[in-house]
Design a protein around this nucleic acid. Structure first.
Length: 419
RNA sequence: GGAGGAUUCGCAUAGCGGCCGAGUGCGCACGCUUGGAAAGCGUGUAUAGGGCAACCUAUCGAGGGUUCAAAUCCCUCAUCCUCCGCCA
């Protein structure tokens, strides 16, 4: 949610942002009109309410005829107050509903355009040239006894899989490596709930345009999170954080659930796009003035993981039309996937500035009072895609796979062998 | 799932339908005192909204109701605690 006061004072900035995203500009003016009416209703209600308060006090001291006259006036006033209060509540709700439709205000540095208009910030490493026919991760997964998508489908349907043997061990190693690095960087490791209530889901913005991809348990009115960002962001919901503690950084390890609605036919083979996977997510609550630097730091930590996994990758500055409503800027890291001859997203970091925290009512306090914090998130490691990248990039002609040095200590081996 | 109890200002607690936005203690901040500290004394100590100054309004778990007036009475819900049942 953007700041109503900011919008009132800078409607042009908001219009420009909406335009840059390819979203509805007219909402801005609707908000302005609604806000005007809202403020009028508030003033009216408050005047009536003040009158009622003084009258009520007068009743206490009055006697006899004077008292019954006051009571009579009080009665009519009470209905008026109630009416004014209802009008006020309606207009406040209407204004909020409108402003909630607005996306976060773009960072002016974010490239403007649609999904394909991203800007490549850098390339790291060079795609390996194979002197044999590279196998895809599905085949490698079978040869190593690491991934079983057939039984996954049998047991849980499409886009499901088992990680077995080397695959399971690889997950543990990746998680261990990621969490260990995160702790070194000052993150607090967290195992959050993956089943959350509507307020957490809504507060983080996943019930808006992303709601199609969220699993909802109707009977209990609970949601399965698509990322631990939800739980981590809501962790400090309705709290005021001391400014000297910022930034507060958490590294959440959790399963993530995604319906993948509207992706029929996309990445149907393998484990690039699945309904359930595990992920270590970085989440930072920081001072708004430091959000941009923090964003760079999150990106840095993401790059370090890719470097440690010895993978060639590129970093892209995601275009305005593909940011999602909460982010004002987003960097994706895309690893080279040899059998697809393409860079594919493996991690992503978003700066939500105060947008998400305003909804969740998370503030910090300094000398001048309480103000909204900024929130940022970034993937440290998303297991299936990282497994795909590692298997495909580090494979040998016989189907064995070399283990990146950083993981060898965790796995007690240098190679995944055939089963 | 059943029975009971609780939910008040950072924490702990007080609170008769009007004098309660709310007392007290602790904590915290500032000042006095001191060679310095502790103790002691004094002052202050929520958030949001509207005018954007004085001021006004709202908020005592959430939502509804009764009343001229609700922290205080009634209803619904949520959370926590205790006991019982069930499962681990």
């Amino acid at each position: 949610m953007i700041d109503l006061k900011f919008l009132r004072e800078n409607p042009d900035v908001v219009r420009a942002s909406q335009k840059g995203r390819g979203e509805d500009i007219s909402i801005v003016d609707k908000v302005l009109v609604s806000d005007e009416a809202r403020r009028l209703a508030i003033t009216e209600f408050e005047a009536l309410r003040a009158e009622q308060n003084t009258l009520s006090k007068a009743v206490a001291g009055a006697k006899g005829e004077e008292k019954s006259a006051l009571l009579e006036r009080g009665k009519t006033l009470a209905t008026k107050v109630k009416q004014a209060d209802n009008t006020r509540a309606e207009l406040e709700a209407a204004t909020k509903e409108l402003i909630m439709q607005l996306s976060n205000i773009l960072d002016p540095s974010a490239p403007i355009g649609k999904e394909e208009d991203f800007v490549v910030i850098e390339h790291v490493g060079t795609p390996r040239v194979f002197d044999f026919e590279a196998k895809d991760h599905i085949e490698l997964g079978k040869l190593l006894g690491a991934i079983d998508t057939e039984r996954g489908a049998k047991v849980a349907g499409s886009r499901s899989y088992f990680l077995t043997g080397a695959g399971a061990m690889l997950e543990f190693a990746l998680i261990n490596y990621a969490i260990t690095s995160a702790i070194k960087a000052g993150f607090i490791p967290v195992i959050p709930p993956v089943l959350v209530n509507p307020s957490a889901m809504e507060g983080t913005g996943f019930l808006g345009q992303a709601s199609e991809n969220v699993y909802h348990l109707e009977r209990d009115d609970l949601y399965l999170v698509g990322t631990s960002e939800v739980s981590l962001a809501a962790f400090h919901m309705d709290e005021i954080l001391p400014v000297e503690k910022l930034p507060i950084r958490y590294a959440g390890y959790s399963s993530c659930f995604r319906r993948e609605a509207g992706t029929y036919g996309k990445d149907t083979r393998g484990i690039i796009r699945v309904h359930q996977f595990d992920k270590v997510e970085m989440f930072s609550f920081c001072h708004p003035d430091q959000a941009q630097e923090e964003h760079r730091r999150l990106l840095q930590w993401e790059k370090q993981i890719l470097d440690a996994m010895e993978l060639p990758y590129r970093v892209i500055d995601v275009a305005s039309g593909d940011l999602g409503s909460s982010a004002n800027r987003k960097f994706d890291i895309e690893a080279w996937i040899p059998t697809q001859k393409a860079y594919r997203e493996v991690t992503s970091t978003s700066n939500c500035a105060e947008f998400q925290a305003r909804r969740l009512n998370i503030r910090y306090k300094d000398e001048s009072g309480a103000k909204t914090v900024a929130t940022l998130n970034g993937t440290l490691v998303a297991i299936p895609r990282m497994i795909v990248a590692i298997l495909e990039n580090h494979q040998n002609p016989d189907g064995t796979v070399n283990i990146p040095k950083a993981l060898q200590a965790f796995l007690g081996a240098q190679r995944f062998e055939l089963v």
